[in-house]
Amino acid sequence: MTTTTSLDGLVRRAADRLAAKRRGAVAVGAILGEETAMHGADPGTLFEIGSISKTFTSLALARLAVRGEAALDQPLRDLLPEGTAVPRRDGGEIELVHLACHTSGLPKLPRGLLPRGLFSSDPYAGCTPGMLLEGLGRTRLRSAPGRRFRYSNLGAGLLGLALARRAGGGTGSGADYDELVQAEICRPLGMADTRVALDPERTARLAPGHSRLGRPRPRWNLAALAGAGGLHSTVPDLLRLARTQFGDAPDGLAEAVALTHATGHRITGGATVRPGWIELRQPPGRGEHRTLFHNGGTGGYRSLLAVSPERRAAVVVLSADARSPDRVGMDLLTELAAR
């Protein structure tokens, strides 16, 4: 099939569209088959990726499950300190897969974060393991575990904390979660710039964040909620992660990716939440295929990772500006998936 615009041209056009309306840096990358293209900020530029971190947290769960070190249906209480009170509802208890698929019934934010953190420039910095676990026992579930999709940063953060404790025996702090992600995902894939904590060299490569109005915004510290949104990354690193969704992954990781694709909870007729992803199914009239995506946002950053596994197409958009790049990124993936 002949095409009028190359992959490189499409990615350049998307980056130019975004950069024209933002004060902060923008970086766009895409894959189509064996081709890769990147435009915008230097490929070594780091960004806060916000909730795309949840994709890493869920993949780490799948890695431990494949090795038999955890199970998707394992109760959360098994991985928390002895005596931690975990809420139940209608006789059901929270399992790890409920946290990964946002069906735990937990509220979006930890108990005690609001209103104190609502107007803070760094709203999650005080979320220590002790604060989260103490508040968990006083939290009321909004629905029975496993019954209803309800997006929860608290749930994803607790999953990261619990898995970090299981894998490393620590407290579940941001540093423990960082090491979990390095061991299970980043080192096997050669993703050297994806991490929670940044050393001085990587800090110098971090694009400064901006508000929607273009004003400078400080970095966020997700503390013990790092599994919900604490990672930094680059376009090249996230494209490496995207390729794993095509089945291109080392042994162990490929099995874990397949497990996340096979596990899910239906939201609507065309949408399913899977561990780390929202899956949209395109109807037969539009060339039936799946789109897996997750976006992210912190005080001064927005991000998008979207993949069409059957088309071997993927898009990464990172922006040091609080305005959403989702429309541009999803339009680019739609164009690539149609080729």
Rank of each mutant, 00 (worst) to 15 (best):
V28I: 11
G172H: 04
R274F: 01
S308H: 00
L118H: 02
L336P: 08
P218E: 11
D16T: 14
R219A: 14
G137E: 07
T128G: 11
G269Q: 13
A164K: 04
V317G: 06
A337L: 07
T4M: 12
R116F: 10
E255L: 07
D248P: 01
T45D: 03
G214H: 06
L154P: 05
A183F: 00
D331E: 15
G117A: 06
G299A: 14
L292T: 09
M191C: 06
F56M: 08
L241Q: 01
T334M: 14
P81W: 02
S51F: 05
S121G: 12
R88D: 11
E82M: 08
F293I: 00
P123M: 03
Y124N: 02
P218V: 09
H232A: 07
L18I: 07
A144T: 11
M1S: 14
D321L: 00
A60Y: 03
L253V: 03
C186P: 05
T5M: 13
D237H: 11
A337V: 05
T260M: 00
S324T: 14
E82D: 13
L136W: 08
A226M: 08
R202E: 08
H261L: 15
R150D: 15
A71K: 12
G135K: 09
R166T: 00
L159K: 09
T4D: 15
R13H: 13
Y177N: 08
A125S: 15
T5F: 00
V273T: 14
L32R: 13
C101D: 09
D199L: 00
L180C: 09
Y151W: 07
R165N: 10
Q282M: 14
A271S: 13
D42Y: 08
A207C: 07
A271H: 13
T128H: 08
E95Q: 14
G285L: 12
G130W: 06
G247N: 07
V66K: 06
I49M: 10
A167E: 10
V257D: 09
L10P: 00
H232T: 06
L133C: 09
F119Q: 03
L7G: 12
L133E: 07
H232C: 12
G40C: 10
L161G: 01
H39A: 15
E335N: 05
M131H: 13
G68Y: 03
G229S: 03
E335P: 00
V273Q: 14
G169E: 04
S319V: 10
L239E: 04
L118E: 10
G168R: 04
E255I: 10
R12V: 13
H289Y: 10
T103R: 12
R327Q: 13
G155F: 07
L280N: 09
G297I: 08
E310Q: 14
G50K: 11
A37Y: 01
L180S: 05
C101F: 03
R116I: 09
